Simulated scan of single mutants.
Amino acid sequence: MTFVDSQVALRCGYGIAETGLEVLTVSGPDASSWLTTLSSQIVTDMGVAESREMLFLDANGRVKFAAGIVWMGEVAWLFTPDASALTQFLESMKFMSRVEVTARPDQQVWGFFAPSLAEEVLAGFGPIWSDPWPGITPGGTAYSPRATSHPGQDYSARLGVVPDVNIAKAYAELRSRWEQVSWPRETEDGYSLSAPVFATESDWRALRIAAWRPYGTDIDQRTLPHELDWLRTAVHLNKGCYCGQETVARIVNLGHPPRRAVFLQLDGTSSLLPPAGAELYAGSRKVGTVHTSANHFEDGPIALGLVKRTAPTGELTVCWQEGQEEHSLAAAATIIGDLSGVSWQGQSQIDRKAFADASPRPGSKSLNIAG
């Protein structure tokens, strides 16, 4: 089965996929208040089985870690690309807090798209995280253009957790449910599906790239949440103080983050895909880097990256080296976010007192957000 079949079936709810994500748990009497204090998100008011997204920033507002969170009564489940690294960071921030942080390498994370029979099956094995992208969640704001529609408007991604010891059982239950569906199936957009699929991580990645959906794997040492339009889902602008809040508030009010996310449609005449870190050029001038790429069933080779705020739209060139061999591809660039870098909903949503409290006091050292 080709990636076309796999991605179509996955998108239509007739498949599950590897995601490359991992999980950890946070429990204890202080878990919700502690996570709220450390992160960009409010956790203290979450209901059972509710999903949100959070970022952990450094003092300059740059993204260190990103995680989806599901609150399961007394335990928070966090979905992230590197559970070990996030666990280590959280352990370093415990101090006197009554919390327990545990990486869960005994759990596999599968992805699917709703509506799907997979949700009913996987809910029996563990929590389900419902991706809020690209909605603007409470306290959030948008940086992408004020278009009538977002390319991710139908992006109904879900993540489910299955313990290693129950993998065979989960497979069997999924097969049993899908066998009750009439095959082949015709999709609304004219594709024919012969069977449900277990898709690869690259299939999952292609669908989220097409939706402009950032992951924690897309960051570098300078990434600000504004640059990836991450304030839609992962930052609550009206919450109390947290590490990096000053930068978040200042850029929302003043605009001009140093870089902007870019969606790239790559030259399809080559079978090569640029790796993370491949350089983007406008003519002879380096303007940014690629952070993730994949082959999409309709758009062909696509990628997400970050470019300088003043980088031109239109044609760019992607360049990278593998061993002694140099490669380059033409890329049609769509810039995510307007040139000024001003959010188009933040001005009415941000808590002015929170911004004032986060702003530098007279005589204090100004924060360099340009990096």
Rank of each mutant, 00 (worst) to 15 (best):
E18S: 12
I369Y: 15
T310A: 14
V181M: 14
G216S: 06
H226Q: 05
G371P: 10
R260V: 00
E227R: 01
G371H: 15
D164H: 15
G160S: 04
V99Q: 11
H256L: 10
C12A: 15
S176K: 15
S293C: 05
D299Y: 14
G255L: 01
E91G: 13
D229H: 07
A358L: 02
A332D: 11
D189L: 03
A261G: 13
K94I: 13
R259L: 07
I42R: 12
G283I: 07
F89E: 11
L280M: 04
W129Y: 05
L38M: 12
A211M: 05
P362G: 11
A59M: 14
W77Y: 11
F355V: 13
D106Q: 09
G346T: 01
L90F: 10
P258Y: 04
L24N: 06
F112C: 01
H150S: 01
P301I: 04
I42C: 09
S97W: 07
V48W: 10
D357T: 13
L304C: 10
L273P: 04
S270N: 02
F297W: 13
F112G: 00
L174F: 12
R208L: 03
P257W: 01
G305L: 02
D164I: 08
G240C: 02
S84G: 14
P196G: 06
E188I: 08
I16V: 15
S39T: 15
F113S: 04
A206F: 15
A210P: 13
V8A: 03
A276F: 04
S27Y: 02
E322V: 04
Y14I: 01
D229I: 02
W129H: 07
A147D: 11
F56I: 07
S156Q: 14
A66I: 10
E22W: 05
Y14P: 02
F263V: 07
P145T: 03
T310I: 06
S6Y: 09
P275K: 02
I302Q: 08
G277T: 01
G288Y: 10
V26L: 09
E74T: 09
E22C: 06
Q153G: 13
S33L: 10
G323T: 02
Q345R: 10
V4P: 12
F263E: 12
F125T: 03
S97F: 07
R205G: 06
P145Y: 04
A9Q: 04
F79L: 01
T317W: 11
V197Q: 06
R222I: 11
V23Y: 00
Q107K: 11
T313H: 11
E50C: 05
M46W: 14
S130F: 14
H327I: 00
H327C: 03
P362I: 08
L35C: 05
G124D: 09
K365V: 10
V235Q: 04
A142F: 01
Q41C: 05
F113T: 05
G277E: 04
G20F: 00
W129I: 01
W178D: 14
N253P: 03
R11F: 06
P257Y: 00
